[in-house]
Design a protein around this nucleic acid. Structure first.
Lengths: 216, 216
DNA sequence: TGTACATCAGTGAACGCGCGTTCACTGATGTAC
DNA sequence: TGTACATCAGTGAACGCGCGTTCACTGATGTAC
């Protein structure tokens, strides 16, 4: 919310309005989905004329890109903060679920249906690597890595571009990846409403998947 | 593709054009996503005027609803056919993946990001139950159900609205549900492109998750 | 088999709408001397 | 501290566009006698 202090009033004002635009954008996305995002509608809600927004964003695409970036960064920061506070995989799972439930459409903007043709900004890839890094740290801390490598372990050990220079052993690679996909599986179906009317509590299912992965 | 035979030429023609409209709709969805679906654009591609389509669909929403229904039905039919051919959970997993890869946007239309406000037609709920029924059958056939019930088993046994009158024991409920969420987790991330650039082969991860669930 | 009539697929003009985006402008805010 | 100038936020008019959808119509296809 706050930017650097050593800035001119005009710069501070600009940053503030940019932020306000983004907030309205998120509201609009929450209300009607990302595909319905419209600069004119945002301007109207802010009591401004449409063209005014072009002082702050070059075009609609730049705004969306910025939102995707922000969402990614926020998730990475959330996960990172938890990890630095000594959280294990189980806590990270809780944090992830909370983050998703806080704003489902934000979760979907990152992990949801991609629009064919649209490509996320390049720096999100790096943020994704950072998030995986946190999961790898936690996996290493909790996994004994004593068992013999599974076939998947071997495959991942040979294709670990995504882990960068992380010192995680193959079993941790598999574990972090599985952690991600299993939790996403439950979360995305829950957020998309596919469990509504089924009767059970998604939190129970999520908790069980988490326990299977962490042994807590 | 073919409809009932005992129909007038006009009826057959209508059904044929309806089908052609849907095919073009799928192409358009595959090219630019469901939110970009436009009746006028379809008409243009078919060499017709826009209003002509209103002979076949009351409006845009009805077309989309029909596509969702068709996708659901097609998935149910695919899974059902496999099961009747004696397939186990592992084969069903393969069939699911194939179905998803055949047309990712079709998969997303069913399981992807929901548009806030839009509600799927009521009969899809029943089809979803049917699909779960097939998974439950297969789970029962493969699970020994000897182990003591887990806490989740107990919860599901008490909240099994989605299983209807299916005779599956609690452990099978949990197993079918987990089968669904885990495979969806891998599939949806793969289809959304979140594994691209990571280096490994999603099929390996999918296969491992399948094996964990089936013991094959 | 031929004629009279009904059905109905498809057209073209028209509607209002909201979109993204550009442009020339006004007026307030900040800067330099 | 006061004046002259530059910066820049925001406006309003305007652009072309494609959308969904309606309406009155034409002309081909099918039906009844």
């Amino acid at each position: 919310m706050a930017k650097a202090d050593a800035s001119t009033p005009r710069q501070r004002y600009r940053a503030q309005v940019r932020e306000e635009i983004k907030e309205h954008a998120w509201q609009q996305i929450a209300a009607a989905g990302a595909s319905a995002l419209s600069l004119n509608a945002i301007a109207k809600r802010m009591g401004m004329s449409g063209p005014a927004l072009y002082r702050y964003f070059a075009n609609r695409d730049e705004l969306i890109t910025e939102l995707v970036r922000d969402a990614y960064r926020d998730l990475a920061a959330t996960v990172h903060a938890r990890a630095e506070a000594g959280a294990g995989l189980g806590d990270l799972a809780d944090a992830l679920r909370q983050w998703a439930l806080d704003d489902p459409q934000r979760y979907f903007l990152v992990y949801g249906t991609p629009v064919p043709g649209y490509h996320a900004p390049e720096d999100t890839r790096q943020i994704a690597v950072e998030i995986m890094g946190v999961l790898l740290d936690a996996s290493m801390a909790e996994q004994p890595s004593a068992a013999p490598p599974t076939p998947l372990d071997t495959h991942l050990a040979e294709h670990r571009a995504w882990a960068g220079a992380h010192p995680a052993p193959p079993s941790a690679l598999r574990h972090a990846l599985t952690f991600w996909t299993r939790l996403h599986g439950v979360l995305s179906l829950e957020l998309a409403g596919h469990f509504t009317g089924m009767g059970f509590d998604p939190a129970e299912l999520y908790a069980t998947e988490t326990e299977t992965l962490t042994g807590r």
